[in-house]
């Protein structure tokens, strides 16, 4: 007789994390696409505003944040879509680990594969915009604290859009307004570090708070969206 035994939740979630990271780095995976896009966006800025280093230094943190935001958005489309298209999402819904946790793990894997490289690439791109090393450290720190919020907010958008035809086009429209607070506090913390005289602490703390809220709200909202959207 077959009897259900206690599944190991941690082992199941670890398996999901490893699988998603493997998929991101294998052929056809999107791990480095975000960084490429980030580089392209940052490179385009001087063509639009001119190569004046003083100006670039001033707007640099904002440009890095915008670039990171857009690069993050670009990768969101595939966060749930590939699992939806091949039926994996059905099976994730049926499995014993709660869907909320599974989605949180998927978003974490997505951030490790696409968000973290952006944080690591930012200092290099900071060279292109002539941002000083200390200020660049601060910008990288704000990106480290803020990009998880973008991914987890994006998770909600991905959950809403995935079951729709042409959802990929809908996704940015849904997610961009939700990302406004993250952008505001990310850029103001970065600017505080670059030009002063406003203190770095308060906006940075709010940014961290936004990320924590995202970590909690994102998976629940996305799971609710999926449960209602799947047919």
């Amino acid at each position: 007789m077959i009897s259900p035994a206690g599944p190991s939740l941690a082992s199941a979630l670890a398996a999901l994390l490893v699988r998603d990271l493997r998929l991101a780095v294998r052929i056809g995976g999107g791990a480095l696409m975000g960084v490429l896009f980030f580089l392209a966006v940052v490179t385009l800025v001087p063509f639009a505003v001119g190569p004046d280093l003083a100006l670039l230094r001033r707007i640099g943190p904002a440009m890095l944040w915008l670039g990171a935001l857009l690069a993050n958005l670009l990768a969101l489309d595939r966060l749930l879509a590939s699992d939806y298209e091949d039926g994996s999402l059905d099976l994730l819904l049926l499995a014993r680990p709660p869907l909320e946790l599974a989605l949180a793990v998927k978003a974490a894997a997505q951030w490790l594969a696409t968000g973290l490289p952006l944080v690591l690439a930012a200092p290099l791109l900071g060279l292109l915009l002539d941002i000083e090393p200390a200020a660049m450290g601060a910008v990288a720190l704000t990106l480290l604290a803020g990009t998880p919020a973008l991914t987890f907010i994006g998770l909600v958008g991905a959950g809403l859009a995935v079951t729709l035809r042409r959802g990929g086009l809908l996704l940015p429209i849904l997610v961009l307004p939700l990302a406004v607070p993250v952008l505001i506090f990310g850029v103001s913390a970065s600017n505080a570090a670059v030009v002063g005289p406003v203190p770095f602490g308060p906006p940075f703390m709010i940014l961290c708070a936004l990320t924590l809220v995202g970590l909690v709200v994102g998976p629940f909202a996305a799971a609710a969206a999926l449960r209602h959207g799947m047919e």
């Binding site: 056809g28 490429l36 392209a40 490179t43 001087p46 190569p51 280093l53 292109l128 002539d130």
Partner: peptide, 27 residues
């Protein structure tokens, strides 16, 4: 500065971006 937006270097940077796009397409 490590980088100024000099015309020759900038062209090489765009070339580099195109190479990366090409590699991404191969992958």
């Amino acid at each position: 500065a490590y980088w100024v937006w000099d015309a020759r270097l900038t062209s090489m940077l765009v070339l580099f971006l195109m190479y990366l796009g090409l590699l991404a397409l191969w992958r």
